[in-house]
Nucleic acid binder design. Structure first.
Lengths: 207, 207
DNA sequence: TGTGTAAGCAAGTGACTACTTGCATCCCGC
DNA sequence: GCGGGATGCAAGTAGTCACTTGCTTACACA
């Protein structure tokens, strides 16, 4: 019950540092402050443990994007900032998961939940912007979404290794990518008043 | 002499599939069709082998970008296409290298050569576009370069795992990202004649 | 007070790891 | 034809891996 959680948390930490092959049951047990045998009694095998740990770390709720865009610059910027922060906090584990994905796809498929959700949310928002007539250029929402998310993803994964190829300062990067994207799709600054301020996810919850 | 190359090639293949810890000397020897002892006689240790293999795979010449932009749309598109193709061909080994980078930085630092070079080339080109007055919007070349390269990188790394979040068709993706970027920095289509058609790298060579 | 359940501990299993040693075999240049 | 350097082969070393077994301790509930 309690040792179970300790073990799962320890497994996440060790996996983030050393990947699957480096996550020995001994190391995980030590990190959890638990006897190695307890791992096998609780989870049966190392693989089952890691699978459960992955399921837990990769199930996160994303910051919502309004269903009806009102102030695209500030709304998209704060979404991008929360997304890049999410990725930065998890950059180690994401790198390891991506690297294991080919060898153990069923073990890390839970990792694709967040980016899929983020892409869907962003596409929906950009399409709404287009429908509102506020994006004056012709564009494919999926391509635009992939571009912004890709820039954010690469920044979160690569800045630690090559800080000089990414924009400075780090804290403004998400905003700078966002502004560039908005210009690409022809959205100029400025708020438009709307009566509907509900967000997609709160609407779902209240339904 | 010849077995040395066989071993290095085999090491690259095995590493791309299984990473450092999964690249056992036995597996590499089998893949190279060579006795395991030969590896130690030739390279001394597994780590030295992998280091050499990494140095080799990551030293590649990139497609050049003209020093003086003439037809930005076609020039940038073909650069993006060759860059995305480079990354796609090496996606497995790149994923593994990024995942090992924290644990063995000195062993994989050669991997940052290509993206650094690409970023420098692209920045240079975008800055030239700006100086020419062909990019009508204000923008930071480094941010714009990071955005295009990030989109391409994320596409190359992620499409295999989540094909539905990236633009279709795959072969047009690099072009679509490029067009979006050009619009973001305010470059419209069309060629401008220039007398100087030399590229950066050929100029270096002839100097 | 007794019983069941979760945990610790010590020891061990067989497989695999990087790496070494000793010796036989090959081929190339002289 | 002969010496030397590169290779193969068999065996072994010490360590680590995931996982198991048998036994003991601790706590919770009845």
């Amino acid at each position: 019950m309690d040792s179970r959680n300790e073990i799962i948390n320890a497994a996440c930490q060790v996996f983030a540092k050393l990947g699957f092959r480096g996550s020995t049951t001994r190391r995980i047990a030590d990190a959890a402050g638990v006897n190695e045998v307890t791992i096998f009694r609780q989870f049966g095998s190392k693989e089952a443990l890691i699978r459960e740990a992955m399921k837990r770390t990769h199930s996160v709720e994303l910051a919502p994007l309004p269903d009806v865009p009102s102030d695209p610059d500030s709304e998209l910027t704060s979404w991008s900032e929360s997304f890049i922060q999410h990725l930065r906090l998890r950059s180690s584990i994401i790198r390891k998961t991506m690297s294991e994905m080919e060898e153990r796809p069923e073990m890390s498929e839970s990792a694709s939940y967040v980016p899929r959700q983020a892409s869907a949310d962003l596409c929906h928002y950009l399409a709404a912007l287009k429908r509102q007539g506020r994006a004056t250029e012709k564009f494919d929402p999926k391509t635009a979404a992939a571009m912004l998310m890709g820039a954010i993803f690469a920044d979160a994964m690569g800045r630690g290794m090559m800080p000089d190829v990414y924009p400075q300062p780090e804290e403004k990067a998400a905003q700078m990518y966002t502004r560039l994207l908005l210009r690409a799709i022809g959205v100029e600054n400025g708020t438009r008043r709307t009566t509907n301020k509900q967000t997609k996810r709160t609407k779902q919850l209240s339904a």
